[in-house]
């Protein structure tokens, strides 16, 4: 979640996060979890049952593009047409996120880690929560930076990139040893 953070360590979903594209907190976590859980479980199953036994792992992008992304998109659209406004927004977010490096990347990491299905899904949930936490923290930093007196060239994207770098350094320190020392 922290030491191997999807955004700050793997750089997944960096473009929308650093450009400051915002959604409601609940909508974004709902969309992230739904899209990633479906993509991770499907890629894990297809990789284990279809690709790995025949040595066809190189076809992972094709499997994602032709099977997983359309299914996630379809589900997003189905949710978006439901009644509740929150679900409509979440459905639209799932539809948009279906074809993204964040969803495909997290699914790839989970599928390639030699995990069982349950472990892969847990890893996927952890990655989503870690990404979401980094997104929220970066959003807070962005708000502070907007009020700061920075040199003109550093305003906006450069400042947020440097902040993401500093935050990534802090996240690197949160590993098993750190947690062990914290807990005692």
């Amino acid at each position: 979640m922290f030491a191997a953070n999807a955004l700050l360590v793997y750089g997944l979903g960096a473009c929308p996060a650093l450009r400051g594209e915002r959604r409601g907190l609940l909508v974004s976590i709902l969309a992230l979890l739904t899209a990633n859980l479906i993509a991770s479980s499907l890629l894990w199953a297809l990789r284990e049952l279809l690709l790995a036994p025949f040595g066809l792992e190189a076809l992972e992008p094709l499997v994602f593009a032709l099977i997983i992304a359309p299914l996630v998109k379809y589900l997003g659209r189905a949710i978006a047409t439901s009644g509740a406004p929150l679900l409509q927004k979440a459905g639209a977010a799932i539809d948009e996120a279906a074809v993204s490096c964040l969803v495909f990347g997290i699914a790839l990491i989970s599928a390639r880690s030699n995990f069982g299905l349950l472990e892969a899904l847990t890893a996927s949930i952890g990655a989503c929560v870690g990404y979401w936490a980094a997104l929220v923290l970066l959003g807070a930093v962005r708000e502070r930076l907007e009020l700061s007196d920075l040199p003109e060239s550093f305003r906006g994207a450069p400042a947020i990139l440097v902040s993401a770098g500093l935050m990534a350094m802090a996240f690197m320190g949160i590993d098993a040893v750190f947690i062990g020392n914290l807990v005692g």
């Binding site: 700050l8 003109e152 060239s153 450069p158 947020i160 990139l161 993401a164 770098g165 500093l166 690197m172």
Partner: peptide, 25 residues
């Protein structure tokens, strides 16, 4: 060595983006 880590990637990218904007201005 930090620059070879992802944190360094963000720092280098941020510095280059600032230099790019400075050059544009």
């Amino acid at each position: 060595r930090l620059l070879a880590a992802p944190a360094g990637g963000f720092l280098i990218l941020g510095s280059l983006a600032a230099a790019y904007r400075f050059a544009l201005r």
